[in-house]
Amino acid sequence: MTTRIIQKMLLFLTFSFAQTVSAQESQDVKWDGEKIKGVRFLPYAAYQGFPYLNNSWQIGKIDFASGESVDGLNLRYSTFKDEIIYYNTTISAQIVIDKASLAGFSLQDGPGKTRIFRKQFFDGYMKGERYFEVLSSGEPNLLVYRKVSLQTTSAYKDQRGVLTNLEYANDYQFYFYSPEKGYTSVKPNWLSLMARFNKTDQKPIKKLLRKNKIRISNEESFVRAWKVIEKEGFKIIP
């Protein structure tokens, strides 16, 4: 009996304490959601290949240039146009978010895996603002511009039965980037990676990769190799 009274009193005290300390009106106003600006998304021509990063909408976060961010959005990255599209559930519209208003975005690609894209100015061929995926953050960063371009191929009939010779093809471009040295192009293979180091460094790097049992055969192993090399303090040559 006494225990029950004590329990009830404790419950009451805890409740009143919580009331005292946080008797604030709940903030149910979503201030940031309404700041998303853009134009209506118009579907692309149905060629062979895939003009998006992913097949479906992914939950993601956008970061505005002003420093604010909005989370929990249905996002889709158009690798063809280098635009981020979001699905506004309230008005059931696919909207291409104004690139000028964003600093970047991130996508949830499977449990615990976040893909981070950052808007950066690219000063090489086809100058302009681009979304780069950050594969490795450090000094320098390893970035990839996931470009999909229209390329000619042998003639085929598309979904509507129209004869065409165009297809969406991946044209991914990898870069080492540091604010001081700018962009250094690299291909995700062993030879291209080695070429980015001094001759004197190449031998110990080969040894290091062997020791870590890394064989560069795809993007994933390339990123893993770079992370191991970077950890050992090897520097790339511009």
């Binding site: 959601g33 309404e34 853009g38 506004n88 309230t90 519209a93």
Partner: peptide
């Protein structure tokens, strides 16, 4: 000259 969106406004 295009359909613009601002949050939920069209």
């Amino acid at each position: 000259q295009s359909e613009r969106f601002y949050g939920d406004l069209r």
